[in-house]
Simulated scan of single mutants.
Amino acid sequence: MSQFYENIYVAPNDTDYVVESVPDAALLACLGIYPQSVVRKSHCYKLGGPVILHISSRKVAVGKDLASQILVREAE
C-alpha cells in the first residue's frame, strides 16, 4: 500500500510520486503537474527554497507555497 504525504515539499527526495491533488493554478497543468501524473522529486533547497521536480524529460522548480499544496503518494 502506498504511503500518503501531506505535500511534496516535505516528501523524501529522489523518489517518484503520483500526484493526488493540486491547487487551482493553471500554471501547474501547463507544467504537466495534474492529478494522477507521475513526478520525481529531485531535491528541495534549504531555508524555504523551491522544490526541483522531474516531469518527463524536464526539470521544474516549484516554490514552497505552491509545492506545499501539492498532495502526493509514493509511486508503486
Rank of each mutant, 00 (worst) to 15 (best):
C44S: 10
L71G: 01
A75R: 12
L28F: 04
H43R: 10
A61F: 08
S42Q: 11
G49V: 03
G32Y: 04
A26V: 07
E6H: 07
G48T: 09
N13K: 13
E6Y: 06
D14A: 09
V38C: 14
F4D: 03
V18T: 14
V10H: 11
A25W: 06
P23A: 03
K46S: 03
S37R: 15
I52F: 02
N13S: 09
E20K: 15
T15W: 10
Y9S: 01
Y9K: 09
V72N: 02
E76H: 11
Q3K: 12
P50V: 15
Y9M: 05
R40Y: 08
D24P: 00
L71N: 10
V22S: 05
K41Q: 15
K64V: 01
N13E: 10
S56G: 09
K64C: 05
L53N: 01
Q69E: 07
G48C: 05
A11H: 05
S2M: 04
P12W: 03
K59F: 07
Y5G: 08
I33P: 02
I8V: 03
V18S: 05
L71T: 09
G63P: 12
L47I: 04
S68E: 08
P35N: 12
C44P: 00
V62M: 07
V18Y: 01
L47G: 00
I8R: 01
N7S: 04
T15R: 15
L31H: 10
K64G: 00
H54Q: 14
V19E: 10
V72T: 05
I55D: 01
Y45G: 00
E20S: 06
L27V: 08
S2E: 11
I33M: 11
S37P: 01
K59W: 03
A75V: 01
A67I: 06
V22H: 09
I70H: 11
A61M: 14
D14G: 00
L53F: 02
S2Q: 11
T15P: 00
